[in-house]
Amino acid sequence: MIEVEDLTVRFGKGKAAVTAVDGVSFTVRTGEAFGLVGESGCGKTTILRALAGLNEDWSGLVRIDGKQLMPKRERAFYKLVQIVFQDPYGSLHPRFTVNGTLMEPIKIHDLDRPDERIDRVLRQVGLGPAFRFRYPHQLSGGQRQRVAIARALILEPKLMLLDEPTSALDVSVQAEILNLLTDIRDSTGLTFLLVSHDLSVVSHMCDRLAVMNQGRIYEELTVEDLVQRRYRETYTRQLFEASLGYDKRLSTAQVKALDEAGA
């Protein structure tokens, strides 16, 4: 579904330029759920934005659904790939009702039977028709994220890019959203590219994952490998151990090691 080769994204020019993504390559098969894990600032969002066509300033080779992508996309592309953002409080237009938000993609792509589509997609994400005419400020964080997912689903894409869809939510709400995503994948066979800093979320949702740090992919492994601790990189081990909780012995050792390295 996705083939990425040597994707590089730079921001700024000259001396101030930052290389946010540095020669990243990976492949996601159709119907698969693929995870990208890494800490804040490592370039996860930047990759998704480049794939989604929100950033035209990248180099490398990207093929989605067999077609090679140019920085500028044609309209049909957007029906194929949809994105869900990290912050449900910022990703819905505050002046649009749920209905207005869902109506926009229908109008842009000239789809028929708008009411039917909206009702169906709202039911699919577990919001009744009662939510249709609410404004975002009348919704909780979890409900907003459901609307954002509905907005992505309404175009019936084949690939869904998920940028930390639950990191702004409470664990109980996170569980609901993750379950919803699982159900959607079961019923539609969508391909997921899920970005998260939380190894346990990725291991719950995905089949394979790539561990990123500072704009590069360190290693790629299956979730089974991860569970069996068959990772090669120290960095992956650190992430793995951190996701298990606090361990005094390990952490104290880490502080020492870090300071000796002169950080």
Partner: peptide, 26 residues
């Protein structure tokens, strides 16, 4: 730079539509 503008762009809205329908009301 907000996500809701990114979202509408990711749905293929042409620039004039983004400006008139989404930026202007704000």
């Amino acid at each position: 730079s907000s996500d809701y503008i990114a979202a509408i762009r990711a749905q293929g809205a042409p620039a004039w539509r983004v400006v008139v329908k989404h930026v202007m009301p704000m």
